[in-house]
Amino acid sequence: MKLQEKPVTVNNAAAVPPRLEVTALSKTYGSGPSAKCVIEDLTFTIGTGEVVCIVGPSGVGKTTLLKCLAGLQPATSGTAAIDGRTIAGPPAEMALVFQDYSRSLMPWLTVRKNVRLPLRHLRLPEAELNQRINTALEAVGLAHAANQYPWQLSGGMQQRVAIARALAYRPEILIMDEPFASVDAQTRFELEDLCLKIREDFGMTILVVTHDIDEAVYLSDRVVVLGAKPARVLDVVDIDLPAPRDQISTRALPEFAEQRTMVLSMIRKPA
């Protein structure tokens, strides 16, 4: 197979209107001679209802990128925008699932109350509130654990609580930062399929950061490949795998192997 030669900032989102647009984004920590440039000139877009994965070597600044997208940190230059509006603080239509589930859940709240916490200020009618919580907990298969505390659950279950919390919030854009990095392989497959199911059921636009290339190819409509330090977009790869995807048959397709090899060789290629 042959690597396509493409200019580095081209993306293939022509078909779908862009929902999330990152334009020439860069992030530098500190200033002067000790300044550390983490992200340099990132440009890509994500269309409505797409699942896009960002892959890249570890320590390349993926988490920093997500923090900029989530409005937790200001970009040094360039912009990230939702529907053309520049992100200045945490956008109302976005939810973020953090990598470290053990630190992102409130240990003093039960599973149900954790899911409920972000909904309080939305002032929903009680019936809708409960319905949202129940739907979210059922979607992640945790309805039975609603009254337990996060620390009584396994790692995979805790991450599912974090996902349920995001689901109940009903974001239009769901961002996940290496969400399945610290769960066992079996749970990981389940959570990946859960992620695809969410897109089907709730029509969310989903952005997943991962260092697992197989996972990226399996989940995505497109994969944004980051490379080198500071992070730059090496390429945006369209993944043409049939839907619905299936852990066994999709991963057995020759196209799957082809596309993962393509992404992998791009990452390992010296910049």
Binding site: K67, A70, G71, L72, P90, A95, L96, F98, R120
Partner: peptide
């Protein structure tokens, strides 16, 4: 992380 969670979910 808890502070980030609170910000992302726009807690008052």
């Amino acid at each position: 992380t808890l502070k980030d969670v609170s910000s992302v979910y726009r807690l008052t």
